[in-house]
Nucleic acid binder design. Structure first.
Lengths: 143, 143
DNA sequence: TGATTCCCGATTGATTCAATCGGGATTGAA
DNA sequence: TTCAATCCCGATTGAATCAATCGGGAATCA
């Protein structure tokens, strides 16, 4: 179970933007400066913008910036907007492609794990990250 | 973030075997009976056997069976043996492909998330699942 | 007007995934 | 001894996904 580079790059970019909040919009070129492929990153920032996590300014001296308080942007939001929903198995989302009933053991397990992973990621926001807070166990709980 | 079918099929098969423990080895054909592709499942059972989670008996009337007490087989073991280690980002395992130092913010975050997800999965064993115990929050903790 | 930037769909090449294939080895029963 | 049932296992295939690039367009500012 692994994230794709999308989520990793996106988080990287968001941390970068969070730190530069005071200096106006940051161009793609600047954000990509430490090695991320620029045009690829562009796709990701598009996704982050559509998720309302960043806003953008066009034209010369334009760029991207964080669109709301850092404490309101969670790791879950960043990853979901670029990687799609965290959902270990399709059968967790009600679409019922499998033949078994809605209470089959595996489904309950996937749901439990998925919920907990989501809580974990919702429990950490950008502000926590850049302030280097040691993360606390929070929101992780039983079904 | 999604599991592949490997982990899903493997868990399914393990639950099946757990329930049939009293009835001797179960053949691939039997295990695959409710729709899993038989030859694909064969690969997975090979992996589970190499991880010592099941043992096999060849020849007519042969098959697979759980190889140790149900309470000693965790979801983490099942998924790892078929999907590889749960590790959200390569940079978590010390191999240092990235240029940044060992304490970069994203690395610490991936490590935190990875550790917690692993604890979560180590905290549930086959016995819990087939006895339909409501899972408790356990082992999930801070960095 | 032109440079700088974001915007965005299409395309490419590599990798991974899901599954099948084709044969082999082992065992128990007839 | 033969045969059917079963596990064993590496190789192959086709499709999907991933990572990245391409090629143009639109907005903004000097």
């Amino acid at each position: 179970m692994k994230l794709s580079t999308r989520g990793q790059y996106a988080l990287h970019a968001m941390i970068f933007l969070a730190k530069k909040q005071a200096y106006g919009p940051q161009s793609l070129k600047t954000i990509a400066e430490d090695g991320l492929p620029e045009q690829y990153l562009e796709q990701l920032l598009g996704a982050l913008r559509r998720a309302d996590l960043v806003s953008s300014v066009r034209g010369a001296a334009g760029g991207y910036m964080i669109s709301k308080p850092l404490s309101e942007i969670t790791v879950a939001q960043i990853l979901e907007s670029t990687e799609g929903p965290v959902s270990l198995s399709d059968c967790v989302d009600g679409d019922m492609s499998c033949s078994k009933g809605s209470d089959c053991e595996t489904r309950m397990l996937w749901r439990y794990l998925t919920d907990n992973i989501n809580s974990l990621m919702q429990g950490i926001n950008l502000s926590d990250i850049i302030e280097n807070k040691p993360y606390q166990s929070r929101g992780v709980n039983a079904s």
